[in-house]
């Protein structure tokens, strides 16, 4: 029943720096976090996703050799973590992306220092935006505020 469990891995198994990826080189978050436009989970990249670009030496940075050797040895799914939201919370990345919410609106800009923004999230911050009390300048469509919209 269900998919086989993937063992928890240390996030630092492949050296990864957000500052070298993302906006600065013209990459959208969804390029690696493949579910962030269409799925509930944003997901972490698989090795194949990394290899899409890293099949070629991308820069002359000496670090790239270390990276290439680590990638060659890496697991198919190098990153995994326990879901940070409780199980009774239904959060769908795709719906928010489709509504025009930018990744940085919720996750902040801390991802450049490899912080995903968990300290910014609680039910109160979700409700404030859903009730229209924050992000007024972005003009989002009114969002659902009844319990069963996000819980089950």
């Amino acid at each position: 029943m269900g998919e086989p469990r993937v063992p928890e891995r240390a996030v630092g198994s492949i050296p990864f720096d957000h500052a070298l990826h993302g906006d600065s080189i013209g990459l959208d978050c969804a390029a690696c976090h493949t579910g962030s436009r269409a799925s509930a989970n944003a997901f972490m990249p698989s090795k194949a996703d990394c290899m899409d670009c890293h099949r070629l030496p991308l820069t002359e940075n000496p670090g790239i050799e270390t990276l290439d050797s680590m990638l060659a040895k890496a697991d198919d799914r190098p990153w995994s973590h326990k879901r940070h939201l409780p199980d009774h919370v239904v959060f769908h990345h795709g719906v928010h992306a489709a509504a025009g919410v930018a990744c940085a609106d919720c996750h902040g800009r801390g991802y450049m220092q490899n912080r995903y923004g968990a300290e910014l999230f609680n039910m109160q911050s979700c409700l404030k935006c859903h009730r229209g009390e924050t992000f007024k300048e972005k003009g989002f469509k009114p969002a659902a505020t009844y319990c069963a919209a996000c819980h089950r």
């Binding site: 269409a38 769908h92 795709g94 489709a98 509504a99 919209a149 089950r152």
Partner: peptide, 21 residues
């Protein structure tokens, strides 16, 4: 009975994801 709320939720989420903004 929840009238299969989870099925309704999943359908609604899928529908709203596919919309263009």
């Amino acid at each position: 009975c929840s009238l299969c709320l989870h099925r309704l939720q999943n359908d609604r989420l899928k529908f709203k994801t596919s919309l263009t903004v």
